Simulated scan of single mutants.
Amino acid sequence: MKNTLIIIPTYNELENIQLMIKAVLTQNEDLHLLIIDDNSPDGTAEIVKNNMLLFPNRLFLEERSGKQGLGTAYIHGFKWALNRHYEYVFEMDADFSHNPNDLSLLYDVCVNKKADLVIGSRYVKGVNVVNWPMSRILLSYFASKYVRLITRMDIHDTTAGFVCYRTSLLQKINLDKINFVGYAFQIEMKFKAYLLKAKIIEVPVIFTDRSRGQSKMSSGIIHEAVAGVLIMKIKSWIGKLEI
């Protein structure tokens, strides 16, 4: 897994971050990990700094001044990766909802099938979600159906946050023109990749709800996704969507 960077945004992930660092970096010595912490009051960044001594030149930390949103964290990470000439860049959560053992699966598909974007998908083969209440499963599942209907993307899990990009695709997207900061960011990135005719492949993974810490999901994030997708599609129709 050479030339590969995993980006993990954090806010109050003290209970998960040390375990996640170890789980990622001990499985392949070529992997690099960038933590982007939004000034977590629980001391998440300090745990990362302590672990940087154990994984020199493989574990990196970017600290931001406050809670600025998932999308801006990933954009920050993408630019960081592009400046350092990585070839493959992952998005991944800190809470083990994305299994670190699946990193090699997404990477192998990206390399061997020459994909531009590989999505670790909860819904490409049924519903692969563990420990979510039925209400949240239905919300997530039908949100992806809604996005697929509006955008016409042939993607089952449009809101997935476990993905692998080739940086050649990221270079084609104007990262300064990404509008969404919450989970709609995931939809916007996939839609712009789709408009660029990128080769997108979904692979089935099992998503397991966090057992430690608290979810960052809110009603505002959901509203952004529902309303924003429609606006984004309309802009693409009238040629006003900047890619």
Rank of each mutant, 00 (worst) to 15 (best):
V129N: 02
V127C: 04
R84K: 12
E46Q: 05
Y146D: 11
R166D: 05
I201V: 14
E15Q: 12
V205R: 02
S104G: 07
L241V: 13
K177M: 12
N39R: 08
I234F: 11
A160P: 07
I243T: 13
G43F: 11
Y74C: 06
R212W: 07
N50I: 12
H98A: 11
L105R: 01
K240E: 15
T208W: 04
F185K: 01
S144L: 03
Q18V: 09
V24I: 15
T167V: 07
T158L: 05
L70F: 11
L195M: 12
N179A: 11
R58K: 15
I47C: 03
L196C: 08
K233T: 13
N99A: 11
I47E: 04
L70V: 06
F207E: 06
H85F: 07
H85C: 08
K114D: 10
N101Q: 13
F191Q: 02
S236G: 12
K113L: 08
N51Q: 10
K190F: 03
D38W: 01
G182K: 01
L170Y: 01
F191G: 08
N83D: 15
Q186A: 07
D93L: 02
V181H: 05
A45L: 05
M1C: 12
Q27P: 13
L230Y: 13
V124R: 00
P41R: 02
C164F: 02
I234Y: 11
G239P: 14
I234P: 10
L34A: 04
Y194N: 12
V181F: 04
Q27N: 10
G161R: 01
Y165W: 10
Y107W: 12
R166W: 02
D108N: 06
L33E: 09
G213R: 04
H76F: 12
